[in-house]
Amino acid sequence: MYGLVNQAIEDMITHQFSVAKWEEIKKTACLGDMAGFENMQSYPDNLTYDLIGAVSKTLDITTEQVLEAFGEYWVLYTAEKGYGDMLKMAGDSLPIFMNNLDTLHSIVGSMMPNLRPPSFQCTEITNHSLKLHYHSKRIGLTNMVIGLIKGLGKRFGTVCEVSLIESKKSEQGQEDVFFVKW
């Protein structure tokens, strides 16, 4: 994963808790010596998973909770850290934005060769709901997607419910379907 993701985790912990907490988490993840992350540099996926695990251990919450919280924070973080205009262009409402999720990730993926960004597809779109199909080569980030959608809901001031209706793990990766109602 790119440094930006790890930076976002750091930012979330230092803002919602403290710098000391982040240092503690880094130590737990055996990253005590790491000074900081370069946002455009590619880091091993395991490093991010270790961090998520360390956050879970240190804050005494499940990794699912950590991932969901992080997904939500990710929307805020990227908007603040210079990608606000890109997000604005991707839509000014929850359904339009979700429709553009895949394009957005493709755009980002085209310039970051190691990113392997996930794919999104919207089906059965109505005025108040849709099914979001999520495909990722990475396994186990389902809850991050839930957090991401909830974060988008907050961004557009739209109250929404997200439920996981299908979930499949295989060698191809993770395939989930979410039902989003707003």
Partner: peptide
């Protein structure tokens, strides 16, 4: 917005790279 661009259009990629 993104929807005003054709999918093959690289303008957004270009902007994203610059932004990054």
């Amino acid at each position: 917005t993104l929807n005003d661009f054709a999918l093959h259009d690289n303008t957004m990629e270009f902007l994203f790279i610059l932004q990054a």
